[in-house]
Design a protein around this nucleic acid. Structure first.
Lengths: 211, 211
DNA sequence: GTCTATACTTCGATAGAC
DNA sequence: GTCTATCGAAGTATAGAC
């Protein structure tokens, strides 16, 4: 047997990621997901049960994977300042690997978690917890300024997710000749973000640098 | 004539703001908007023509008003560092007055501008332009660090919009007993944001403070 | 596990009287 | 300008054969 063809659920999840991220829960069409995954609708319902269950499975998978990546950074043997910058890099990397991540996250925030169950909500809630842990550790060691951990989470996550998730609308703006920008690249954006985050959260210089 | 009753269009726009922000374009129901505005559907179509036209009217109104507020700050007789902090305050104030602003913005970014026409897209594009103007002025005067204007836009806007727009999902998390937080208040958030922005974009200290 | 055909529902939009 | 009634298009989900 050259091809086991045991790939339906994975293909469906991938198709669901594309569809839900591009159109949102209400805008997504089960027919389209099935077609994109090259299975028929009945097959999709056979594996996932309902549109909502598929959506939850997708989000649980997405946020669980992201949290795992961030946990690696949080528990790495690095000084807190470097962990913080590494978080920026890792969030960017997560988006680079899963292009649908930003749209899904932005939509779910806007949606208020309406379609989610407790497990999926818990997976989302893990992200701020991990960032908060890094910041609090840094403050304790005197390496970082004391800031509210939730503020740190938003200061780091929000710009990256909105900027990278904004690629499609920037294309739309460009189409209409409305974009001014000497296109900022994701690479440059990440570099500048790291610098901004470093400065925003650096501990006030108590011991002065020698003159 | 005690009450002109000439309020249908405004009431419809207000109802549309609530519905579209809570459910998105595809999830919004024209019936619900009409009911909330206490007009019937035919009346709504009489005034706005279609669901899409109503959506565009709402977004054009929303972003035009926000841009006007920000332009005031940009052209105020203030040093750039203060303008920057004032932008933080103003974005927070805009959200305080129009609670649906964050959700609408997050959704439209995720949506990629699909439902928008050129005018509405232009109104959205005005926001980064205004922030960029402040940052470039500051860099020219040596008051601010040289950063890409688009980066500055996202660094300021994104955390505020995502944090304030995230209130509903934080409530959902709290309902399930998943929130750790010693609830960060919007006021404290704004104060800390101003501090972070100030540090992130301050010009490197060339002239040392006297010892 | 896989597919076709279809039941059932909801929603955007309009016709047409007042 | 305002309203009631309704059409027609989609959309989720399932029945039932293979």
């Amino acid at each position: 047997m050259p091809r086991p063809a045991r790939v339906s659920p994975d293909r469906i999840l991938a198709a669901a990621a594309a569809e839900f991220s591009a159109r949102g829960y209400a805008g997504a069409r089960v027919d389209r997901i099935a077609r994109r995954a090259r299975v028929n609708k009945a097959m999709l319902y056979y594996h996932f049960g309902s549109k909502q269950a598929l959506y939850r499975a997708l989000l649980l998978d997405t946020f669980t994977a992201a949290a795992a990546r961030l946990r690696e950074v949080a528990s790495a043997p690095l000084p807190p300042e470097q962990k913080l910058e590494q978080l920026v890099t890792t969030v960017s990397a997560i988006v680079a690997e899963r292009a649908h991540f930003p749209a899904i996250m932005l939509r779910e925030v806007a949606e208020g978690g309406t379609h989610l169950d407790k497990d999926t909500l818990a997976a989302m809630a893990a992200l701020p917890a991990i960032v908060g842990q890094v910041v609090m550790e840094g403050a304790q060691k005197g390496a970082l300024r004391r800031v509210h951990p939730v503020l740190a989470y938003f200061t780091i996550f929000a710009p990256i997710v909105l900027y990278l998730g904004g690629a499609p609308i920037r294309r739309a703006l460009a189409t209409h000749g409305l974009v001014d920008l000497t296109e900022l690249t994701p690479e440059l954006f990440e570099r500048e973000m790291r610098a901004s985050i470093r400065r925003a959260f650096a501990a006030p210089a108590v011991t002065e640098r020698r003159s």
